[in-house]
């Protein structure tokens, strides 16, 4: 995973709450067996509408998505994270993320920054008044800078550390393989096996 320290890019104000993963990428786009090429499916239904934010001039080049509350609800599809990243997004800002989406993002190096809805309203106004304006999201200081606005954001400490270091979860867990083996030796015999050995 690529390490994440700070990112500056065009901010995209997405004034919608409850953006579910079916909207981020509809099921028909989930049939690929690779992790790339999902950018075409990103917000596929909404992008057909000319007035959709990603069809508006400089926003199309955005890399910091600023969304309403409850972003990433619904299906567990990690394709939603791949679609955002394949398109070019490195950060999503919202006042609340769905648990599975937030977890998936952390594994892929997409930063989910939790900011207050009041600050998000301010950032929305700023971005709408200055299309194409850049936002800086700094993971070290946990701040979002958008013009004159400097807003704090939250991200859990462990995910922050992993992102800053660019560490791979499986590698981290495999350091403790002896613990796993020991646990397995003590599992009750009544636990089911798919293959009856």
């Amino acid at each position: 995973m690529q390490a994440f320290t700070s990112h500056t890019g065009i901010g995209v104000p997405l004034r919608r709450s409850n953006v579910d993963t079916d909207q981020i990428i509809p099921a028909e786009y989930l049939k690929r067996v690779t992790r790339t090429g999902f950018e075409d499916g990103l917000f596929a239904a909404w992008r057909k509408d000319e007035s959709f934010i990603l069809n508006q001039g400089p926003y199309a080049e955005g890399s910091v998505l600023v969304a309403g509350p409850d972003f990433g609800t619904g299906s567990s599809r990690e394709h939603a994270v791949w679609a955002l990243m394949n398109y070019g997004f490195r950060v999503v800002i919202s006042s609340r993320f769905a648990d599975i989406f937030r977890g998936n993002s952390g594994k892929q190096g997409l930063l989910t920054a939790v900011a207050s809805q009041d600050d998000i309203e301010l950032i929305w106004k700023y971005l709408e008044n200055s299309p194409g304006a850049e936002i800086t999201v700094d993971l070290g200081s946990r701040t979002i800078t958008a013009g004159e606005i400097v807003a704090p954001f939250e991200v859990d400490e462990y995910t922050r550390w992993r992102l800053l270091e660019g560490l791979d979860d499986i590698g981290l867990t495999m350091r403790h393989e002896a613990n796993i083996t020991e646990y397995e030796q003590n599992r009750p015999t009544f636990k089911p096996l798919v293959i009856n050995a």
Binding site: I100, N104, K107, Y158, D169, I170, T173, M174, E177, I180
Partner: peptide, 20 residues
């Protein structure tokens, strides 16, 4: 509970998950 594809890989490889 449901997991993403990176976690699927993690469980396939380790039969465990790091969870808060």
């Amino acid at each position: 509970f449901g997991i993403g594809t990176s976690e699927v890989e993690h469980v396939l490889a380790t039969q465990t998950l790091p969870l808060k």
